[in-house]
Each structure stands twice: as C-alpha cells, then as structure tokens.
Design a protein around this nucleic acid. Structure first.
Lengths: 111, 111
DNA sequence: TGAACATATGAGCAGATGCTCATGTATTGC
DNA sequence: GCAATACATGAGCATCTGCTCATATGTTCA
C-alpha cells in the first residue's frame, strides 16, 4: 500500500496539478485565435487604442472590443483610460515571450 | 507615394506574414485543450502507447486517438508502430519548451 | 483461420466560439 | 444640454470542437 504514497515527481506532479494545466491551456487558448494573436502582436511594439487596433485587424470594432475583454479577463493585456480612448498594452513580457516563441517555431515548421 | 514602399519592419513585417501568424495560432490551439495538453505533458517524460495514455487521460480511447491524430497532423507528435501498439512521442523539443513556459507562466499568475 | 488485443475512424450531438448588428455608456467640446 | 467621437455590451447566429458510441482495421498467436 505504501507504494502509492511516494512523493509525486515528474509526470505525477504534472498530472496532479489540474490548476496548472488548466491555467496553461487558458493562456494558449488566448493565443490560438487569429484576431487575438494579431492584437497581441500589435501590442508587442506599442500600446494602442481600440481605434488603432481597428486599423490593423480586419474585423468590426465590436469584435475587437469583445476580444480585448477576453484578453483582459485572462490577464494578458492591461487597460487604462486616456480621455475618450481606451489604451491597451501587454500585461507582462511572458506574453511577448510566448508570441515570439510561437512565431519562431511556426517559421521553422515551414522549412 | 514612395512612403509606402519602405521595407517592412517590426509590426509591419509581423502583420504581413499571415502564414506565420496562422502557423503560430495552430500550435497554440493544439496546446489549448485540456486533454491534448495532458497527452503532450505525458509525452514530455517518455514516449507512450495509446493504452498507456488512456491510464492518464480520463476520456475514451476513441477521444485519445482522435486527439493524437490532430496532434500528428499538426506535427507536434511523432508515431511509430511496435507490434500491436502505436507509440507516440513529442516531435521536437519546441513543444516541450512551450509546455514548460506555459506551465511556468500559469503558475506565476496564481501568485 | 479465428480469437483477442490494440488502435483508428465515422457519425452524430451538445456545447463553445467568433462574428456582426444594434444599441448602450463615457468623454469631450460647443 | 447636445452632438460627435470612442468604446463596451447584449443578442443572435453559423460554424467549430470534443466527446461518446459503434464499428472498422491491424497485429499477434494458437
């Protein structure tokens, strides 16, 4: 019986941490949509207002706001008011790292 | 007019490369599902057969096979036959890197 | 060849997703 | 206050996803 009581290591620890798995999938999910990825990529180089993002993403202003809300709820972007405008930026550089890594690997797949 | 002809740099280059964006979102999409993430995580420590993966993922054998097919089509896992068994492994360590990074960042969100 | 085990695949369905349209709320300046 | 601009939100809809069930295909061994 004691055999099952050994401390969790490696895979066991990984599989046991449901919250970590779920959290990771949530982040990846946020990065898995074309529009969201465009938005995040655009925010990599500078913070931007919704109107500015509209000039980049070929979807309605509504769609962009909806996606920004999702990104904000998941903690990937930060927001602040500036007059009439709502300025969005990346919440931390974890996100930038993931975008870079993703693009790199995507590029290498093609070669 | 020549103004619009300047070489693409930074954001412009990023936004222009639709294939790169699409490719990246496909990779992230593969990592965005709980079952798939479990499978990939399990393959991080060792290659495994479908039956072995069944002991880890609480879904049907069919579901696992379907997900493995998707992961294989997207180039995230490799497969080989070994007798009756089908052995799966991570296709390259890009995947392992992303999983690690994702888990790390998920962990930090909680703190 | 036929039974047993291992894996793959197709159908079908419930729930999730991403978009647009319409409309609501903020903020500024006249 | 009122119009104009900027952004957010709710509803509704077409499409996509991930699962299970049933069944087909592969492989081994007697």
């Amino acid at each position: 019986m004691g055999d099952k009581e050994r401390p969790l290591t490696g895979l066991d620890a990984f599989l046991a941490d449901e919250d970590a798995i779920y959290g990771a999938t949530q982040i990846f999910d946020a990065l898995s949509d074309y529009t969201r990825f465009q938005i995040l990529g655009a925010l990599m180089t500078a913070e931007r207002s919704v109107t500015e993002l509209q000039e980049i993403c070929p979807v309605s202003q509504s769609a962009i706001s909806h996606q920004l809300r999702l990104l904000r709820d998941r903690g990937l972007v930060a927001q602040r008011r500036e007059g009439q405008r709502s300025i969005y930026s990346l919440a931390d550089d974890h996100v930038a790292t993931l975008i870079s890594v993703g693009l790199e690997h995507a590029g290498e797949e093609l070669s």
